[in-house]
Computed example of a mutant assay.
Amino acid sequence: MQNGTISEARLAGARVKAYRKHHAHDRGLLLIGLFKLGKSILFFLIGVGVVHLLHKDISDEIMRLAVALKFDPESRFVAILLNKADLIDAHRLKQIGVATFGYSAVALTEGIGLVLEKVWAEYLTLSLTMMFLPWELYELVRHPTAFRVGLLLINLAVLAYLLWLLRRTKAESLD
């Protein structure tokens, strides 16, 4: 009789553990997922802005924006932007738009998957984060800025957390 009670208690404990595993949301995944969803929205809006510029003179738009933001149109900053704008033609603008919308779609997929705590999303985010680290390091060495350092630190934290979480999940599944 006692063995039956112990087995029932273990079964009940296993059910509680399984319930918590399926119903307790991981705050880290939720935070990373929301960050990815925010990036998706940002890049979607950038893509919309690029599409808006397709049939316009970019230099005129830069001047209009500089005046609206009360920048001196003769400033060095505006001159640099105007010089860079001359390098962008309609074909290049379309390429930028496609890449921006594509990145937005990938970030949306990551974000939704992470918020829903899908393991495939954890692996996707882990893979993409690892793929972009060499590029981020290259850019940081080339032009070090506080923004790039912050971006690298955020991505390293995401990478470390996902590695820890996947190892923990694998260890729990072996138990």
Rank of each mutant, 00 (worst) to 15 (best):
A107D: 07
K17F: 05
S7K: 15
Y123M: 09
G102F: 07
T100P: 01
R10A: 12
E172K: 15
A79C: 01
R10K: 14
H23Y: 13
F71A: 00
L37F: 08
T100K: 00
L133H: 14
R15G: 07
A9H: 09
A160D: 07
I88Y: 09
D72L: 06
E110Y: 10
E136T: 09
V48I: 11
L30W: 11
R142T: 12
G150E: 02
L151F: 14
S104K: 04
L93Q: 06
D60H: 15
D26N: 15
L166S: 03
L65P: 00
F44C: 06
H52D: 13
A105C: 03
I96F: 15
R20P: 01
G150M: 05
E122M: 14
R20C: 11
L37E: 07
N155Y: 12
A171T: 13
H55G: 15
A9R: 14
A146G: 00
K21P: 03
H55K: 05
G102K: 00
P73R: 01
L153F: 14
L69S: 05
G102D: 00
I32K: 03
K39H: 10
D86H: 14
L30A: 11
K39Y: 13
I6W: 11
D175G: 14
A85P: 05
A68K: 10
Y123Q: 06
I58V: 14
G150H: 09
D57K: 14
L151C: 04
G33L: 01
F147A: 04
L30D: 05
G150K: 02
L34D: 01
I58P: 03
A121V: 11
R76F: 12
D89A: 10
V98M: 04
D72A: 09
F77P: 00
S173R: 07
G97A: 15
K21I: 03
K17I: 03
K39W: 10
A79R: 02
L34A: 07
T129M: 09
G97C: 12
